[in-house]
């Protein structure tokens, strides 16, 4: 039996005065998923998360989280969810232990043991004052607060910023463990490799709209090829193909040794390098390429990062 999705939004819109927040957002996160939410700065990632958690009210549209309405049943959602803000601040004068206790008390949860364990794993000293903590250490406190009650849904806003690589690794191990115990993980990031490594599904948001949302495996197999060519070629022949997106272009330095006869190139200097994404019939690509004076060709699967970069820039 298919479970109800953990997060489902229906034309969710949030606008702040004139500026755009999110527009007609339709997002769906299944139960037990490990979901990456990607987008450039200001795309609406935090706005989406803050709307789902009831910090801000939607302008129009609706959403259900864990089966509850985000407006009328907010407390029920928050009881079962854990949240790590991108920039977390605590009450001045408190010790780490006090913050963790405060958070647990608000949840009426007796989770001191889990908290101690998490502090140990993240190398966090609970007797320190929160005012003296660095960004990374504050983040660790936030992680413990978000995870200590083993929530059904973990929402994390740019969780790894400020964490050193070792702690990042431990952090993802913790997330995986929680995920295996049945928690749904939803995190926003702009570190694409992170999403590619850990997530089962991902969505890309840009300018307040979801551009694509799918299993990471499907996103990787888009039929798109990454092509890198070097040598002498006519630019207009390449750009004349349908489904070409130039990603990188470099001209050979003037006076550098030229592998090809300069007179052969028409319109373009020889010895240049070009990378592009190609989405189309592979035979027409090869036909065009064979007509040019290339010295090197690589055709490979693009990384998720390159696929997304393509969307970021377009």
């Amino acid at each position: 039996m298919a479970k109800e999705p953990v997060i489902v939004t229906d034309h969710l819109t949030k606008s702040y005065g004139k500026s755009r927040g999110i527009v007609d957002l339709d997002l769906r996160v299944d139960s037990g998923d490990f979901f990456g939410f990607i987008g450039p700065n200001g795309a609406g990632k935090s706005t989406t998360i803050r709307t789902l958690l009831g910090l801000i009210a939607p302008t129009s549209g609706s959403a259900r989280v864990l089966g509850y309405d985000i407006v009328s049943e907010k407390e029920k959602i928050l009881q079962k969810a854990g949240y790590l803000p991108s920039e977390i601040h605590f009450y001045s004068g408190m010790k780490v232990r006090d913050v963790l206790k405060f958070s647990a008390d608000l949840r009426k949860c007796d989770c001191g043991k889990t908290a101690d364990e998490l502090c140990f794993r993240l190398d966090l000293d609970p007797s320190r004052k929160v005012d003296d903590l660095s960004l990374g250490n504050r983040k660790k406190v936030g992680i413990v607060c978000a995870v200590q009650h083993h929530p059904e849904l973990l929402i994390l806003d740019e969780p790894t910023s400020g964490l050193d690589p070792l702690i990042q690794k431990e952090f993802f191990t913790i997330l995986r463990e929680e995920n295996e115990k049945g928690s749904t993980i939803f995190f926003s990031s702009h570190i694409l490799s992170e999403v590619q490594t850990y997530c089962r599904s991902a969505a890309l948001i840009k300018d307040g709209k979801i551009l694509l949302s799918d299993k990471v495996g499907n996103l990787e197999q888009t039929g798109t090829k990454k092509v890198t060519i070097a040598g002498a070629f006519r630019m207009e022949k390449i750009t004349g193909l349908s489904g070409v997106t130039i990603t990188d272009q470099e001209d050979a330095e003037a006076g550098a040794s030229e592998p090809c006869d300069g007179s052969r190139a028409v319109g373009k200097e020889p010895g240049q390098k070009l990378s592009f994404l190609y989405q189309g019939d592979i035979r027409s690509l090869l036909t065009v390429l064979s007509g040019e004076g290339l010295t090197d060709v690589t055709i490979s699967e693009p990384s998720l990062e390159e696929i997304f970069m393509h969307y970021y820039e377009s």
Binding site: A81, P85, E87, I88, R107, G142
Partner: peptide
């Protein structure tokens, strides 16, 4: 003090 983002995602109305 930016603590709203810490306090209000707790299950308290």
């Amino acid at each position: 003090d930016h603590t709203a983002e810490f306090l209000f995602p707790h299950p308290i109305s």
